[in-house]
């Protein structure tokens, strides 16, 4: 009997999910004409998905964070008591509308040309803080995962912050799933999903978005082991040099700050160190010297 209860408890723990959904609300992305999917259509797919996730297990929890152009904010938390289940949709839409209006007001006149990037680093950081709070709440917390519904192109200036968030998620074993609804692949999210063991998906037919979401992203982490999920396609781990932003195969790295350069410089532009001789092969020769007497 006792044993049974223990098993029963652990079963409850491993298929209860906490789903953090990061919704891209970048107005510059959603207003582009070549978009196959309008924002309202997109929302109806997502709302159906969120509702079905909550119905899959009554202990499931969903938190929605809006990733805006000028700010990020929590728009919905299914665990807060103020929302009755039947008003879920209205409440979420109302908060989202408030957020979008506020986000627009923050916008400065000289906005970027083309589609700017949205603040993915901010919403990822917030989601991770929320997940830490759930971890703190006790040993039997729901299994957290992050789902990025993202369309805007990557913002190179967010690179360090996004990588920091990815590594922190990896340390806490939180998978970052990504569903890219934009025209291009997102290198950031490819790396995020690859490093954290999440699923990266770029749906072909955006009008069937709900099906993609429901089949790939709705199952809890335990059941994922039994599913044939999209395999990671090639992830580009090549670096780009700090001087020209070119993607390079081979380069020079400052031993003090690890900045990457495509050719030899006298002085590091990041940390200001002055370099001595270029040491291309020194490590390997010294290694061989050391190894030979041993073997």
């Amino acid at each position: 009997m006792l044993l049974f209860l223990v098993i029963f408890d652990s079963v409850i723990a491993d298929d209860v999910s906490l789903l953090m959904v990061l919704v891209d609300t970048n107005p510059f992305f959603w207003s582009t004409t070549n978009n196959a999917l309008s924002f309202s259509k997109f929302l109806s797919h997502v709302l159906a998905f969120l509702n079905s996730t909550l119905l899959l297990n009554q202990l499931n929890q969903v938190v929605v964070i809006a990733t805006g152009f000028n700010s990020c904010d929590y728009v919905y938390d299914s665990s807060s008591n103020s929302v009755a289940p039947n008003q879920r949709t209205e409440r979420l839409l109302q908060k989202l509308e408030e957020f979008v209006i506020k986000d627009e007001q923050l916008s400065k006149e000289e906005s970027a040309d083309g589609i700017g990037s949205s603040l993915l680093s901010g919403s990822l950081s917030m989601a991770l803080c929320y997940i830490q709070r759930v971890f703190r709440s006790g040993p039997l917390h729901p299994q957290p995962r992050i789902l990025c519904l993202h369309g805007s192109p990557d913002g190179p200036q967010q690179y360090v912050a996004i990588m920091n968030a990815i590594f922190s998620a990896q340390r806490s074993m939180v998978p970052i799933d990504s569903c890219v609804i934009g025209a291009q692949h997102s290198a950031f999210l490819q790396q995020a999903s690859y490093i954290t063991g999440g699923v990266y998906l770029k749906p072909q037919q955006l009008d069937g978005l709900f099906q993609y979401l429901a089949t790939v992203f709705a199952t809890d982490l335990h059941s994922r082991n039994f599913l044939q999920l999209p395999k990671p396609v090639g992830v580009d781990f090549r670096a780009s040099c700090f001087c020209h932003k070119n993607t390079i195969d081979m380069g020079y790295i400052c031993s003090v700050c690890l900045s990457i350069f495509c050719k030899h410089h006298k002085k590091c532009s990041t940390c200001g160190s002055v370099f001595g001789q270029a040491q291309t092969n020194a490590p390997s020769t010294s290694k061989q010297k050391r190894k030979s007497p041993d073997t």
């Binding site: 152009f69 000028n70 990020c72 603040l119 680093s121 950081s125 709070r133 912050a161 968030a165």
Partner: peptide, 28 residues
């Protein structure tokens, strides 16, 4: 206080600064 520790020891991002566009370009 818990977030303070998590942010400085593991995350290394300030969620507030990361979710504000102008403050970020200022600091850059």
């Amino acid at each position: 206080l818990d977030c303070d520790i998590y942010i400085h020891e593991s995350l290394h991002n300030c969620p507030g600064c990361e979710s504000l566009r102008h403050s970020k370009s200022d600091s850059d």
